[in-house]
Design a protein around this nucleic acid. Structure first.
Lengths: 208, 208
DNA sequence: GTCTATAACAAGATAGAC
DNA sequence: GTCTATCTTGTTATAGAC
């Protein structure tokens, strides 16, 4: 396989020199274009052009357009699930667990903003059985939030809300961040996560 | 203009016999298809077929595919804005105002589920100047939430949250309902709105 | 207002040379 | 692995008969 020096990434004030394969380049450009214009509006020609190759060359790396979408969404799903698993299994208090899970979610989402937009919005373009497989992955993730909420209610730390409804409301609030988050904005992901956790856990109303 | 008897709608246990014009039929079917498959994936042929006319006949009612999208999204935006204006201008307490606004939002969203999905997700397919006009409409709506939150903080009824952040979080939680709401489900829109308002206003954590 | 027919073009995908 | 060239299909939109 041929590699090419593609980009230099600054992260956490350390310099990484990352060698990106052609396949990864295609995935990154596809994620950018699909998140901006949507799956159907993004053509193989668009993707090829932004990478700097001919459309037919894309088919040396992927068998179909849907395969590209699948790899982006699956990688994102795995990052979300892996990102909170150790927190869920820790022995933190419910409150700390939920806060850490919310921060982790926002950090993963903002770090993979394009892929996350696809994870959240473009799954309907999967044909079966991928569509079902994907729904299953999302449910595994949501179930981890439900379990922590149920545990919190049992331990008398949370109010007696419906855990399914609670998990959905939390994830709803978190997932919308991709609609307005800008890497250049004032708030850093961790800060956004902290503020969201604070608001969702304590509510908007002033206690007596 | 020719009208045709199209459908019988049961609502609030009263029977309405509604005469729907061809144009309204096209709008309804387009909203259904676009909300399911997305704007680009929905073709004029799909829409025409589901209405039972030829593709070219659609162009007797609309000048372009984008015009159809625009009418659906604009009508939805106006419903949202009109739905909360009288509440915002009332002299209810902040808490009651926000609860009423949240319930109204969920009711409008669930009553126009397909149009709302388009309002929330398909606006990127507008070309300028529509895209900017649409963003302006959404901001007018969000500003009403921000204003109520700011008023609530001033009156010491709400905790001192960033009003922009608070409004975004509320609307995020509300807007995701279109992803999981089913008219056949157990919870009615008003109940969903009440539970969401309760959760967002009081928070998940048990007070001391 | 709806139809048939078609223009004008862009899409995903493949074949075969290098 | 990438290219040029091309196939097949599907797209929006229009012209003109009824």
């Amino acid at each position: 396989m041929t590699f090419q020096l593609y980009k230099i990434i600054f992260a956490n004030e350390r310099l990484f020199c990352y060698i990106m394969s052609r396949k990864e380049e295609i995935l990154e450009q596809a994620a950018l274009l699909i998140s901006e214009k949507g799956y159907e509006a993004t053509t193989i020609r668009d993707i090829a052009e932004s990478v700097g190759i001919e459309p037919s060359s894309v088919y040396s790396h992927f068998d179909s357009k849907e395969d590209i979408l699948w790899e982006i969404a699956l990688s994102c799903a795995n990052q979300f699930i892996e990102g909170i698993t150790s927190i869920v299994e820790s022995d933190l208090t419910t409150r700390s667990k939920l806060t850490a899970m919310i921060i982790a979610h926002v950090e993963i989402l903002t770090r993979n903003l394009n892929a996350a937009a696809i994870f959240l919005n473009e799954w309907r373009h999967f044909s079966e059985p991928r569509r079902s497989d994907f729904a299953h992955l999302r449910d595994i993730y949501e179930a981890k939030f439900r379990a922590v909420i149920a545990q919190g209610i049992e331990q008398n730390a949370l109010r007696e809300v419906d855990e399914k409804f609670g998990a959905l409301t939390i994830l709803s609030a978190l997932n919308w961040t991709y609609q307005w988050y800008k890497p250049s904005g004032e708030m850093k992901p961790k800060e956004i996560g902290e503020k969201l956790a604070e608001l969702l856990l304590n509510g908007l109303v002033k206690p007596f």
